[in-house]
């Protein structure tokens, strides 16, 4: 029989850097992130019997951590209306001003990711960086898969526009392929 608690415990320490990266991108404060990571680890060990050994450990941990973060944010928001993120305007416009700049450095990519609205940043991180599938990402975030796709597409267009990743002048010829 698989000892789920041991399975969770064994993976936890090695997974800390990824967990911390996700936490930092959620709360944008290293200090808060570390508390959050610790709380998530505690929660994971306490509910280890709910971890299905043939599913992704990382996705399970991300969901625990994110749910804790959402709880915390809700508790802090004792007043005020939470704005529906899908109604928000994208931070990066498509003014074309940035698009004409030369491709920026990697640090600028970080900055651009940082400037994304939270909902776009988290899908970008889960899909593109942590390489979760859309389905897994939808499960982590508790949203429909269609919402994952729309947020992810917007996140990447914003990122591209902010960093000049793809210029609008058509310098990429008709040669693109997935297997580059």
């Amino acid at each position: 029989m698989v000892d789920r608690k041991a399975a969770v415990a064994d993976q936890l320490v090695a997974f800390l850097p990824n967990l911390r990266r996700f936490a930092i991108s959620l709360c944008r404060s290293r200090e808060t992130a570390d508390d959050l990571v610790q709380a998530a680890c505690e929660r994971a060990l306490a509910s280890a019997e709910r971890f299905e050994p043939d599913t992704r450990f990382d996705a399970w941990m991300f969901r625990i951590l994110r749910n804790l973060w959402i709880d915390q944010v809700r508790r802090q928001k004792t007043a005020g209306v939470q704005d529906d993120i899908d109604d928000r305007h994208d931070i990066v416009g498509s003014s074309g001003e940035r698009e004409t700049e030369a491709r920026l450095t990697l640090k600028s990519v970080s900055e651009a990711i940082d400037e994304l609205v939270d909902e776009q940043r988290e899908v970008l991180l889960l899909v593109c960086v942590e390489e979760l599938s859309y389905r897994e990402t939808a499960d982590v975030l508790g949203i429909p898969i269609g919402t994952v796709m729309s947020r992810l597409a917007r996140a990447r267009k914003n990122l591209a526009a902010a960093t000049g990743i793809v210029s609008m002048d058509g310098r990429y010829g008709p040669s693109g392929s997935r297997d580059e």
Binding site: R21, L106, V109, S110, L124, C128, R156, A160
Partner: peptide
């Protein structure tokens, strides 16, 4: 082709930019 580049490049760029946080 250009649109494909956009999505492929943003994926790679995000990976690259976030990798350092693991270190």
């Amino acid at each position: 082709s250009r649109r494909i580049e956009l999505f492929a490049e943003t994926r790679l760029a995000a990976q690259e930019a976030m990798r350092r946080m693991l270190d």
